[in-house]
């Protein structure tokens, strides 16, 4: 498994098995923050960043747990360590670069307990990726998430002025659009083969 090429891992995580549209991870922010294009882009960047950080953490924790033979602590360790690391990073950014914090910072607490982040940690462990592969996987997943979010925001901005029946408005409509996007993304299948 560890023989997979980096390019194929990236394609797989970002397009073929898009976290949002094929694995349904991170649906909450996808439905919540996809109203405005500008917000969606920044949210996507923040998710990419957190994914890289948590991928690094998860790799370290996994190696540690294997070394001390305590696989049953995996889930608790992942969620606790990832949440605290993101908090630390948030404080660090706030101190070092207020401009960056204003752009990304407000999203960080929202993302910490997002299923896409934990899902990434679990998937990379299940797949037995090396450190470099894990980081590429995280980058691909983040890019895929951003792509889905931005596409969705673009469509929703257009739809804002369209006349739709009352009952369809809101989440129901967003889910329908997501379904169509997901169908479109199926066209990417086979790229990694």
């Amino acid at each position: 498994m560890s023989g997979e090429s980096l390019w194929s891992i990236f394609l797989n995580a970002s397009l073929v098995n898009n976290f949002v549209l094929a694995y349904f991870l991170g649906i909450c922010p996808f439905l919540g923050v996809s109203g405005k294009l500008a917000t969606a882009t920044r949210m996507g960047a923040a998710v990419c960043f957190v994914m890289l950080v948590s991928s690094l953490c998860a790799y370290g924790i996994h190696r540690l747990l294997v070394a001390i033979e305590a696989p049953y602590l995996q889930l608790i360790a992942y969620i606790v360590v990832i949440a605290s690391t993101v908090q630390l990073v948030e404080m660090f950014i706030r101190k070092m670069s207020p401009a960056l914090f204003r752009a990304l910072g407000i999203f960080l607490p929202l993302i910490t307990t997002n299923c896409a982040i934990l899902g990434l940690a679990l998937f990379q462990t299940n797949k037995g990726y090396t450190l470099v592969q894990s980081l590429v996987y995280a980058l691909g997943a983040g890019a895929g998430f951003t792509l889905a979010l931005v596409l969705m925001a673009g469509i929703r901005e257009k739809l804002e002025l369209a006349a739709v029946p009352d009952a369809v408005q809101g989440t129901a409509l967003t889910l329908m659009i997501a379904g169509i996007l997901s169908l479109a993304f199926m066209g990417f299948a086979g790229l990694g083969a």
Partner: peptide
């Protein structure tokens, strides 16, 4: 044996 298929490994 294992390898990448159409969707996943």
């Amino acid at each position: 044996g294992r390898a990448m298929g159409y969707q996943d490994v």
